[in-house]
Design a binder for these strands. Structure first.
Lengths: 120, 120
DNA sequence: TATGGTACTAACAAAAAAGTAACTAATGGC
DNA sequence: GCCATTAGTTACTTTTTTGTTAGTACCATA
């Protein structure tokens, strides 16, 4: 998400793992709050503080980091209005909207998996 | 993946994040090597060293950890044969196979996303 | 002049995940 | 007795990720 060492095994492994489209995709969605943010933005465009209020425990730093990463990956668009106090709006891109149905299936699977694990 | 502190914000946040079936699911698949392992096991059951050879840079420790986590989450089955030297086989569960088509879509999306980001 | 609101940033600390290296048990073959 | 083999384990270090706290700019309003 931010500056990485270039020659750690961690990074070398990542390079070859990210080669796979699937792990690449999961990596892009893997930040702690990213999917939750995408889920909120699915319904409407929102301002920074609006998003923040949705998640009681997220820190401003984390929210900023996740939003920046999503923006960099072309999943959200950030629009700054030249007002005081500042107003910044976030909304999903087409690419992010396409993810919707896939995530729905994954979510359903998650529910199923969760209950099947609980049973044993 | 192993013993967590109970009262860190990290853990408190996780509790509420995991409440969502989607983030729960991604969490289960989020280990560095998990999806790659599942992908290999999709084709055939494999022994520990066989899997290891598929990934030049994975350490035995990491492979063990990821396999154990997958087993615990009901995604793979581990069968130990009482032989010397030991033989252990890993194979997917039904639950894991159901994931196949979803991951395929996610992978396609990943490919698309990757090329769209590269362009800019 | 002081205060408040928005959307952050910087410096730092804590926690988790991933990686390294050395070691283990059991037994068959030399 | 010594070595090789398989599937690990253990203790430790490194790297990344997440969280904490305090502070910023801008102007409007009290």
């Amino acid at each position: 998400m931010a500056g990485r060492k270039q020659n750690s095994t961690y990074t070398r492994n990542e390079v070859c793992i990210i080669d796979c489209d699937l792990t690449y995709a999961v990596h892009k969605l893997g930040g702690r709050w990213k999917l939750l943010i995408l889920d909120k933005l699915c319904k409407k465009k929102m301002r920074f503080n609006e998003i923040k209020k949705e998640f009681s425990y997220i820190s401003e730093r984390m929210l900023t980091l996740q939003l920046r990463a999503l923006e960099e990956d072309g999943l959200i668009i950030r629009t700054v209005f030249a007002e005081v106090p500042p107003r910044v709006e976030y909304e999903l891109t087409e690419m992010a909207f396409e993810l919707g149905p896939i995530l729905k299936q994954l979510s359903d699977w998650g529910g199923k998996q969760r209950s099947s694990v609980k049973k044993d």
